[in-house]
Simulated scan of single mutants.
Amino acid sequence: MTDKTLTPRPSQLDKAAFLAGYGDIYEHSPWVAELAWEQGLDSRHDRPEALAERMGTVLDAASPEHQLEVIRAHPDLAGKAALAGSLTDDSTREQAGAGLDQCSPEELARFERLNDAYQAKFGFPFVMAVKGSNRFAILDAFEVRLENDPAKERRTAVEQINRIALFRLKARVTG
């Protein structure tokens, strides 16, 4: 079995090159990658799991306000940005992989209602690492998570964002 590493190798990059290669892992939030790089990277961080852990630690340690900025940078699932085709390439692939581009009009209406209710309750979009999921499981998760209190849901959203980052980093491996 070969060791799966990222390309380009994070440990071999200067700050500008690291940000060019990995600054987009956290949706519209390159500061997460920047702080991870500033903490120092070695050859362990050339593996997606180790780099994801380092970057996740940065987000976990951030203030609630900075965490909310990252959460709010994410699009609604099956929302207006998806319908308009204005998602990032990663978000487009992730949502399509979960079948969100195949929703019936009724499912789209349900997503819209749930997105609106979630946004009204929490003040940020519903975030879920949808890789390996489907629109039915996502809609069910929406219903369950709407019952959370705001602090728990912020923590859950951060956990989901860190999972998304790991999936995105694993998609960049070679070897």
Rank of each mutant, 00 (worst) to 15 (best):
A17Y: 02
V32I: 13
G21Q: 06
L19D: 11
H45V: 12
E27C: 06
S29Q: 03
D46P: 03
D46H: 07
L19H: 11
A36C: 08
D46C: 12
I25D: 01
S43C: 09
A20R: 13
Y26R: 01
A17V: 07
G40D: 06
L35Q: 15
A36E: 13
W31V: 05
W37I: 08
H45W: 06
G21R: 03
W37P: 04
P30E: 05
D24F: 08
R44G: 13
A20K: 14
A20E: 05
V32W: 02
E34R: 15
S29C: 02
A33G: 15
G23L: 02
D42T: 12
E38K: 15
D24A: 14
L41S: 05
H28P: 00
W31F: 14
A16L: 15
D46K: 06
L19A: 12
H45Q: 14
I25F: 01
Y22T: 00
Y26D: 02
A33W: 02
W37R: 13
D42N: 15
D46F: 05
D46T: 12
W31A: 13
D24S: 14
A17S: 14
S29I: 00
L35V: 15
P30Q: 04
D46N: 14
S29V: 01
Q39G: 15
I25Y: 01
V32L: 01
A17E: 11
